[in-house]
Nucleic acid binder design. Structure first.
Length: 586
RNA sequence: GCGCCUGUAGCUCAGAUGGAUAGAGUGUUGCCCUCCGAAGGCAAAGGUCACAGGUUCGACUCCUGUCAGGCGCGCCA
């Protein structure tokens, strides 16, 4: 509809230019907006106000001129000039009613579009270090990333969901060593657990599994373990040096193969747990991409070489630096340390280089907002490699704070006292969790009210929307109980009987679904869908209270039932995109 | 100190590329079930859009500055 009007106005502009009413070189960007107020018609344009100045006319005069030169169209009922010079379009109601038929015909496919047809997009999200279970902070990235991916898919993009597994690096060594130390404890070796080690209960579980399978195969004496290890923090030492020494000791005593066994049992156990957690949260990936395979394929050194060839690498203090300041970063970054080890950043350059090489049109990274300082350097690297850095879109998700009984719930990862995503899901349910996580724009801090999410009352927006869906189902059950039937075709031909203000307004709302979905997808803003669904549910509840659907007049009854079934379909479609169920009864 | 995000009703938040009288929910107050589920609806009240300038026909929106809150600034990952 909007496109039709834009085309009509485009013709008008050309005509006015031909008649020398407005400068011929002007190329106005014609904008059509939905009106907020019904008295302003259905759609409006500010074109007259934009053209007024270059044409040397006042806006209302300009508007008259535009309307006089507007080609006729049988969808347009009436055109008005209002306010400072808006042109309001009133659309014939028959043409807007067709949405009801379309929804019933296309059912769960209604609203899908081909906007992104032929375009490939990759969405990488969560990608939490596999050093422990996901916590509630990861949950937001998970829900947000998954919804953004689903929205893109709904508007026709080919979407590849990916989890980047950081299965290399120091954090993972700390994990492997922590597991080994807990195992040693279980086997009766006496020592003090490092302050920097991972202390969660899951570490004990993994240690127990290893003990069950390998018994005392990895046991060493206290002396072998601790001899020459620098003191830990509580004893006046440095906790980083202490843990690093323990890692080296673990590798040395266990040997490569045994160390790998312990390391991998930790990795596999935790990744398996994360995978299971996300699956139950309604999230599945096309790929779990291993950081280790980057090294196995020499991609990290290849990336550094490419940068070197392009002249963006220099040596200082025995390390290799990437001159990222040439591309807007605030300081240069080390890619290879003086000890010969490549940095995490180097892996990330390789990873992003490889992503671009895979041929995606858009590469989306969903990161926690605490990583925002990292964006310029990754972008710089892509530019330096000569890749199209504009393909990379980084979406930063702010933190989520949990509230219980009005109090902020404290969380800390290392101490092991954090609230896990799994606990949250069990407490409030998947529906409420998915919904609450995407209720706000991603750059907005999220206050997650546990009591509200759990409450089965009108306060809770999830229930409010789900109830609207269940209510329509309930009406249809009533119909059956009264031994009445619903004739969809009869309803279709009697749609023009829907002339009540509530009905017209509802039809208008249904007509906005497709554009809402498209804009939610393109802007990566799932909250737009949340707001839309709430408004639709609200109008449906209002309609329900104002009018009886199961009336004696068969024609009106069938038409009304068609309308509310269409609403139910849209609610179901929208909720599905958010990963929320649409129950038939509650 | 520098950088990113945020500041809109008592509270939690919407306000696309600048547009008409700044909107919801919640809370407060008052109504509505002999009627398809009251997990609902209707109505009232509630605002210096953090502050100060600027840009223009027009600014919550764009620019500059100030203030406040969050986060980030390692040869960690």
């Amino acid at each position: 509809m909007k496109d039709t009007l834009i085309a009509l106005l485009g013709q008008t502009v050309e005509k006015l230019q031909a008649d020398n009413h407005i400068p011929a070189d002007l190329q106005p960007d014609i904008q059509i907006t939905n009106t907020k107020d019904a008295s302003h018609g259905d759609l409006a344009t500010n074109l007259a106000m934009m053209l007024a100045k270059p044409a040397g006319k006042n806006p209302r005069e300009m508007a008259t001129l535009i309307i006089d030169n507007l080609p006729a169209n049988d969808l347009v009922e009436k055109v008005d000039i209002a306010g400072p010079g808006f042109i309001n379009f009133f659309i014939k109601s028959g043409s807007t009613l067709s949405v009801v038929k379309n929804i019933l015909d296309q059912a769960e496919n209604f609203g899908l579009s081909e906007l992104g047809k032929g375009k490939k997009i990759q969405v990488e999200f969560v990608s939490a270090n596999p050093t422990g279970p996901l916590h509630v902070g990861h949950g937001r990235g998970a829900a947000y990333g998954a919804t953004v991916a689903d929205l893109y898919e709904a508007v026709g993009y080919e979407v590849h969901r990916e989890y980047y597994v950081n299965d290399a690096g120091r954090q993972m060594d700390i994990l492997g060593t922590s597991i080994w130390l807990r195992y040693l404890e279980k086997c009766g070796i006496d020592f003090e657990f490092p302050v920097n080690g991972y202390k969660g209960d899951y570490i004990y579980d993994i240690a127990t599994e290893i003990e069950t399978e390998y018994e005392d195969k990895f046991v060493f004496t206290h002396e072998e373990l601790m001899n020459g290890i620098p003191a830990d923090e509580p004893h006046g030492g440095d906790k980083e040096l202490h843990i690093d020494a323990l890692i080296s000791r673990a590798k040395e005593l266990l040997g490569k193969a045994s160390y790998r066994i312990i390391f991998d049992s930790g990795l596999n156990s935790i990744i398996g747990d994360i995978r299971d957690d996300l699956k139950h949260f309604g999230i599945e990936y096309q790929d779990w991409y291993s950081e280790r395979t980057l090294e196995d394929r020499n991609l990290v050194s290849k990336a550094i070489e490419r940068l070197q060839t392009a002249g963006h690498i220099y040596e200082k203090d025995g390390a290799l630096w990437f001159r990222s300041t040439d591309f807007g970063d605030e300081k240069d970054r080390v890619v290879k340390r003086d000890n010969g080890q490549t940095t995490y950043f180097a892996s990330d350059i390789a990873y992003h280089m490889e992503k671009i090489e895979r041929g995606y049109d858009i590469v989306i990274d969903v990161w926690g907002a605490d990583h925002h300082g990292y964006v310029p350097r990754v972008r710089a690297a892509l530019q330096a490699l000569g890749d199209d850095a504009d393909k990379l879109k980084v979406l930063l998700v702010q933190f989520a704070n949990l509230f219980r009984g009005g109090e902020k719930v404290q969380m800390s990862t290392r101490s092991g006292s954090f609230v896990t995503l799994r606990e949250l899901r069990e407490e409030v349910g998947n529906d409420a969790a998915r919904f609450f996580y995407v209720m706000r724009k991603c750059e907005q801090h999220l206050d997650f009210d546990l009591d509200l999410a759990k409450s089965q009352s009108n306060d809770n927006p999830v229930y409010y929307i789900q109830y609207a869906h269940a209510r329509v189902c309930s009406v249809l059950r009533q119909l059956k109980e009264k031994n009445l039937t619903h004739d969809t075709n009869n309803g279709q031909s009697n749609l023009p009987l829907l002339t009540e203000p509530h009905e017209i307004s509802l039809v208008k709302k249904l007509n906005q679904y497709t554009s809402t979905l498209e804009s939610a997808a393109i802007k990566a803003e799932p909250h737009l869908m949340v707001h839309y669904l709430r408004e639709l549910a609200s109008e449906l509840h209002t309609y329900y209270n104002a009018h009886q659907f199961i009336v004696d007049d068969k024609n009106i009854r069938d038409a009304r039932l068609n309308l509310i079934i269409a609403c139910r379909q849209i609610i179901a479609n929208g909720l599905k995109l958010l990963g929320v169920s649409a129950p038939e009864a509650m």
